Amino acid sequence: MSDVAQRAGVSHQTVSRVLNGHPSVRPETRDRVMEAIATLGYRRNSAARALVTRRSDTLGVVTPATALHGPTSTLVGFEEAAREAGWYVSVATVRTFDGESMRTAVEHFLDQGVDGIVVIAPTVEVAHAVAGIDSPVPVVMISSAPDVPTSAHVHLVGVDQRMGGRLATRHLLDQGHEAVLHVAGPQDWFDAQDRLAGWRDECEAAGLVVQEPLIAGWQADDGYALGQMLVAEGLPSAIFAANDQLALGLAHAFWESGVRVGPDVALVGFDDEAGAAHYAPPLTTVRQDFGQLGSLAISVLKAVLDGATGQHRLLPPELVVRASSLRG
């Protein structure tokens, strides 16, 4: 920093202000300092800075070992938000979430001196493992369920999946359907539980007799098998599928049997994954803003590090209407 200051003709303190984005530095001075930094190839000594600030500018992320759309998109959204906020992210992928696995991951991050830990917790197993850890740094859990077990140092953010289930179901009822079948995801996932609960809430609010949902996995193959069964045993007029992959499998089975999605069976998915607008027909679905979710997790973590009391915060999803749910 002294070499940079000498080359730019400024004080050591001015260089520090430029590096930390202080607003009091004049633009022309900032340009001179940045030019000197580029010429000299200066890089911060992160270890020395951490000793002074007591911050490593690093966050640990624990995520399930899965390529499913929700957890993967959550990780990408969080990593982008963290980078924009000036934090680096270290990721631990865990296949089995038990107390020992979680403690190992947390200790690994604490050895790195992370400022905080984020856990992507889509399942009951993950949430219970998080509740049992003891961490000296704040922990933000990304999960949809507002009543997941937490301790004082664990703070919750997520997308309101229950609201998403209600939006999808209400849309189908507004199209004039007298009943909506729900093809639900695996019930050890909070997202699947909450989407089912939202569907049930909306059916009961409309005064309908709630029929039993069909429980499936998350894959298109699961939807395809159920679609074949529905063709053989009797089709409903409207289906809310717990994710877009299930909807894709259902649509494939219906197409093979000459059933038209839209005119014959209205279909709504969930996630608005890449390509949902190009299904045949384009899929009505519920969109989650993973970039906004990542930014929310960062803002909660920042607030907690600055001494604020953490809160459980859920983002609203958005219904995206396309041809698959429309009669015409």
Rank of each mutant, 00 (worst) to 15 (best):
D194Q: 13
A205R: 15
D194T: 02
L196G: 00
L181E: 05
G217A: 08
A127H: 03
A192Y: 13
D201F: 04
V114R: 11
L181M: 09
H155K: 01
V137K: 05
L110Q: 10
P149G: 06
A152D: 14
L172D: 02
A205S: 14
A129C: 14
G217F: 05
V148N: 00
A105P: 06
L110C: 04
H182R: 07
A127K: 05
R162F: 00
W218G: 12
Q193S: 04
S144Y: 04
A179E: 15
D194I: 04
L196C: 07
H171R: 03
V148L: 13
D191N: 09
L167R: 05
R166T: 03
A197M: 00
P122C: 11
D111A: 15
M163Y: 14
R166H: 01
W199L: 09
Q211I: 08
R170M: 11
H153V: 14
G132L: 05
G132Y: 00
V114H: 12
V159I: 15
M163Q: 15
R103K: 10
P138A: 01
Q187N: 11
D191Q: 10
P138T: 07
V124M: 07
G185K: 02
A129W: 00
G164E: 04
I215D: 13
I120G: 06
P149E: 03
D147W: 10
H177F: 12
S143E: 01
L196I: 06
V119A: 06
Q175F: 07
H153F: 09
P136A: 08
A145V: 08
G165I: 11
C203A: 13
F190A: 08
R170P: 02
S144A: 15
P149Q: 06
G207C: 09
L208W: 09
V183C: 11
D134F: 14
I120V: 15
Q161I: 01
A192R: 08
V137A: 05
V119S: 08
V137E: 03
W218D: 09
D134V: 15
